[in-house]
Design a protein around this nucleic acid. Structure first.
Length: 428
DNA sequence: ATCTCCCTAAACAATA
DNA sequence: TTATTGTTTAGGGAGA
């Protein structure tokens, strides 16, 4: 089947030349969703898959897709609840069942879901309490809601993983050792992209195939998206501020050592940086007036788009009504950050920093050079110098952040305070 | 015809 | 050792 819409970013985009934009556009498309969830469909084969396959090819889902959007309802958390097969308009009633999603697919049990893998993953993650899920649970969620996959060949899992790895919308978060129960990392949706996703949803209505979006649905989604956007960005902002509290020296040290999350994270880091110090530094980019999410601009794969997105989401920081709020945020956010992303804690946070690469998209290499360069230099002196540089960057980042938030005051004192705290903390 | 997007498959490495 | 997880590459179908 063809192209479905979804956000599946191919990493090619990430590759230097390819950076084009793929991501967001994809996200965008996501909105239009009914992509053939081909994702799920594994090519054929297996048991019963014959029929399934046929169905896949026959676009049944397409017809159902119109209902999809409908099914995308907001959950209690404001997350969209997916129940793929409900009809927004109510024509097709959904047999909600135990869980509202219940069996969306009854109808389409044999047909592919109209969602792309990216969307499926996104939904799965968003519906999780912590907004982070291990691959296994993502599989489970999908299976749960889309029985189609139960009979599908295992290839769909590969596709899921492939999407997680390639799609910048998803961030891998190392599980903290303590709570590990299973292998693998947790996957979260990059907050930076949520707005885009929502944007995509917003556009869904226009999607030819999904033409029937109810106004209600749309408004809810948008509403939600606003809320979420705000939330996320606030978190981002808070994160950035928090970073000020972290030991700069420590960061340098971190930079000097190899990060645990290698390629994948590094690659993604370009954006996901929202949770990383470097990300904060990159905030400088937000000076650019990108306040809105330009669909065109947002492509998961392009660094520039990333920046734009980041800016967009950060821009919402301005929602903070006062500096006090910002201050309050600092401490609070330190707990975690956010809805849920248990992943964005401590260790993970620190490692997220590798990317100083402002444009990050390049992903890896550059950094390595710098690191090695740093290493090459003599210890303390070099480190101190680096600390200063980073300090400056952080200041700038904070400045940018505050600027975006419309808060231009107290930057100096804020920074000082933050530094003082970090030093204090360090001494301890 | 070309580009882009998305999906799928497969190989391979790392890890539990 | 095996299964799972994660990354990467390659290729094809379909839409713009």
């Amino acid at each position: 089947m063809g192209p479905v819409i979804g956000m599946t970013p191919d990493k090619r985009a990430e590759t230097p030349g390819a950076e084009k934009v793929a991501g967001l556009s994809q996200i965008y498309k996501m909105g239009s969703l009914p992509e053939g969830g081909d994702a799920a469909r594994p090519k054929a084969t297996l048991v019963g898959s014959d029929s399934a396959d046929d169905e896949l090819t026959n676009l049944n889902w397409l017809h159902e897709s119109s209902n999809l959007l409908t099914n995308f309802r907001l959950g209690s958390e404001g997350l969209p609840m997916v129940s793929p097969l409900y009809d927004i308009e109510g024509d097709d009633i959904p047999a909600f069942g135990p869980s509202c999603y219940q069996n969306p697919e009854k109808k389409s049990a044999t047909s592919k879901p109209p969602y792309s893998f990216s969307l499926l993953i996104y939904m799965a993650i968003e519906h999780s309490p912590n907004k982070c899920l291990p691959v296994k649970e993502i599989y489970s969620w999908i299976l749960d809601r889309f029985p189609y996959f139960a009979t599908a060949p295992t290839g769909w899992k590969n596709s899921v993983r492939h999407n997680l790895s390639l799609n910048k919308c998803f961030q891998k978060v190392e599980r903290s050792h303590g709570k590990v129960n299973g292998k693998g990392s947790l996957w979260c949706v990059d907050p930076e992209y949520k707005p885009n996703l929502m944007q995509a949803l917003k556009k869904q209505p226009s999607s030819p195939q999904s033409g029937s979006l109810s106004p209600h649905y749309l408004s809810s989604v948008l509403k939600q998206s606003q809320v979420q956007t705000l939330k996320e960005s606030d978190i981002d902002a808070a994160t950035a501020m928090i970073l000020l509290n972290t030991s700069i020296e420590q960061e340098i040290l971190e930079c000097e050592k190899p990060l645990p999350l290698k390629p994948s994270l590094q690659k993604k880091r370009g954006y996901s940086s929202a949770f990383s110090a470097p990300g904060a530094v990159r905030l400088q980019e937000s000076h650019s007036p990108v306040a809105s999410i330009d669909p065109k601009a947002d492509h998961n794969y392009s660094a520039s788009s990333m920046a734009a997105q980041r800016c967009a989401s950060r821009a919402s920081v301005s929602s903070l009504s006062s500096v006090d709020e910002v201050y309050e945020f600092i401490p609070n956010s330190s707990h975690g950050g956010s809805d849920g992303s248990e992943g964005f804690h401590s260790e993970e946070d620190t490692d997220a920093d590798e990317e100083d690469d402002p444009l990050g998209d390049s992903g890896y290499a550059p950094q390595a050079h710098e690191d090695s360069a740093l290493k090459g230099q003599s210890g303390k002196k070099r480190r101190k110098q680096s600390c200063q540089e980073i300090d400056e960057e952080l200041k700038e980042a904070a400045g940018s952040l505050l600027h975006l938030a419309g808060i231009r005051t107290c930057l100096g004192s804020l920074i000082s305070t933050a530094k003082a705290q970090s030093q204090k903390h360090r001494k301890k």
